[in-house]
Design a protein around this nucleic acid. Structure first.
Length: 295
DNA sequence: CGTTGAACCTGTTTGC
DNA sequence: TGCAAACAGGTTCAAC
């Protein structure tokens, strides 16, 4: 459910609704998706949610420690990743608790923040200082912030397939399967194209397409394929504007050719075989090439 | 560097 | 209808 636009939508909602609230208590169910459940159980009670940010597909809840425990502690943040099926939203305590709700954080305004995740591919960690900085540093640039010049330079240095590169969170932070396919369709680039072989106009088109797609998806409140909901329980609408993702067999919006599906980088990839021209066969596999070990 | 496939989980959809 | 396989918004690891 969650790629950058969905997380951004949720962050905006949560910012409006839970920033400033104090966490009264921590109730945990299954905890195998947490780095350190004991640290979370111990560290959260009494903290005020001072700010909420998005970093790639991560939520960062900035915490202000209770005044009593104050001295000497670096400011901590709760890092949350929704994986494939995670949900994070505030509820009234009387609302029935859905199955697979693993974290309940009662707040000081008669509501509780709930984390629900059937598959538990998500992640939750209480981090501060170097651990927090390191976690962010090991990921790549924000797709909506990277400059065209930087993007072109970094693309030219890679011989990976475009689809694999867009999904690589150390290259760009926040793009997932839907928005990779959508960006490639808009840029008219085949998922198997090797990044370094793009012409300058093609690379610029990809930078532009990615920004356009993500911005439009955020404006639409994200994509709701099965069950994504924002902080107020509302679905996103960007799925009705998908041009490639999950459209196998349906006509391309540009040329009417049937959208095809193939597995690239282990994920379903959808593209128009006519507008997104396949690279020459020799270019599909990554050859050893000349790697200048020097610099 | 890059690729593939498996693993981690549960739920839903598809196919015979 | 029933049961099994395939598939799902993600990440990580081993093996090549």
């Amino acid at each position: 459910m969650p790629e950058l636009p969905e997380v951004e939508t949720l962050v905006r909602g949560l910012r409006r609704t839970i920033v400033g609230r104090r966490i009264l208590e921590v109730r945990l169910g299954q905890t195998d998706f947490m780095d350190d459940a004991a640290a979370i159980a111990r560290g959260l009670p009494g903290c005020r949610i001072a700010a909420i940010e998005r970093v790639g597909k991560f939520f960062l809840l900035r915490l202000e420690p209770p005044a009593a425990a104050g001295n000497g502690h670096e400011p901590a943040a709760l890092l949350v990743h929704l994986g494939m099926t995670g949900h994070l939203s505030p509820h009234r305590p009387e609302e029935p608790l859905p199955k697979h709700t693993h974290v309940v954080l009662p707040l000081d305004d008669e509501r509780e923040l709930r984390y629900t995740d059937p598959r538990r591919f998500g992640r939750m960690a209480l981090l501060c200082g170097a651990a927090l900085a390191g976690e962010i540093a090991r990921h790549g640039a924000e797709p909506l912030e990277i400059s065209e010049a930087d993007f072109l330079q970094r693309l030219a240095a890679r011989r990976a397939r475009l689809k694999a590169l867009l999904l690589d969170q150390r290259f760009l932070h926040g793009i997932g399967n839907i928005y990779a396919d959508e960006s490639l369709w808009h840029a008219r680039l085949h998922p198997l194209r090797i990044a370094a072989t793009l012409t300058r106009p093609q690379a610029r088109a990809l930078h532009r397409a990615m920004r356009k797609v993500l911005a439009a998806a955020i404006r639409a409140g994200g994509s709701s394929i099965s069950d994504y909901r924002d902080a107020d329980g509302r679905p996103g609408w960007f799925q009705i504007r998908h041009r490639a993702y999950d459209r196998e067999g349906q006509p391309c919006f540009r040329c009417r050719a049937r959208i095809r599906r193939m597995v690239v980088a282990g994920r379903s990839s959808h593209f128009c075989p006519r507008c997104q021209k396949a690279p020459p066969r020799g270019n599909r596999t990554v050859k050893a090439g000349k790697s200048h070990t020097s610099a």
